[in-house]
C-alpha cells in the first residue's frame, strides 16, 4: 500500500521535533559534563586574579579589554584605522567612554 504524503510529513516532523527537543536534553548533559572545566577556569581566574578571557591575544587592548587605558585603541593617531580585525569588531569598553564623557561635561572653560 502506498504511504500517504501526510503520514510521511507527520513522521518527518515527529523525528525533527524529537531531535529539536533532544538538543535541550543534550544541552543539559553537556552543561553537567563541562561544569568541571568551567569551574576550573573560574578557580584559576579567582586564584590568579584574572580579569579577561584570552580569546583575542593579538594586542593588549584586545587581550585585556577591561584593563585597557583610555587611548590604547588609538595609540598611533586619534583617527587611525584599527590594526586588528577583532579591534574593528569590538568597541572600547562602555565604562571608559562614559567616564570620558562625564569629564568632558564638567569642563567649565570653553575648549
Amino acid at each position: 500500500m502506498l504511504v500517504r504524503l501526510s503520514h510521511r510529513a507527520i513522521a518527518f516532523f515527529a523525528i525533527v521535533l524529537a531531535l529539536f527537543c533532544l538538543t535541550f536534553v543534550d544541552a543539559a548533559y553537556l552543561r553537567a559534563a563541562r561544569a568541571a572545566a568551567l569551574a576550573e577556569s573560574g578557580v584559576l581566574a579567582a586564584r590568579l586574579g584574572l580579569t579577561d578571557l584570552s580569546l583575542f591575544t593579538e594586542a593588549r587592548y584586545t587581550r585585556h579589554p577591561t584593563q585597557a587605558d583610555l587611548h590604547s585603541a588609538f595609540q598611533d593617531h586619534p583617527m587611525a584605522f584599527e590594526h586588528f580585525p577583532s579591534g574593528s569588531l569590538m568597541p572600547p569598553p562602555r565604562m571608559l567612554t562614559k567616564e570620558y564623557e562625564n569629564l568632558d561635561r564638567k569642563t567649565k572653560s570653553p575648549d
Binding site: T23, F24, D26, A27, L30, R31, R34, A35, A37, L38, S54, L55, F56, T57, E58, T62, F84, P85, S86, G87, L89
Partner: peptide, 15 residues
C-alpha cells in the same frame, strides 16, 4: 582575527 594563540575551548550550552 590575527591572534596566533587561540584557545581550544568548548562552550557550555546556555540556551
Amino acid at each position: 582575527g590575527w591572534a596566533v594563540l587561540y584557545p581550544r575551548f568548548e562552550l557550555t550550552p546556555e540556551v
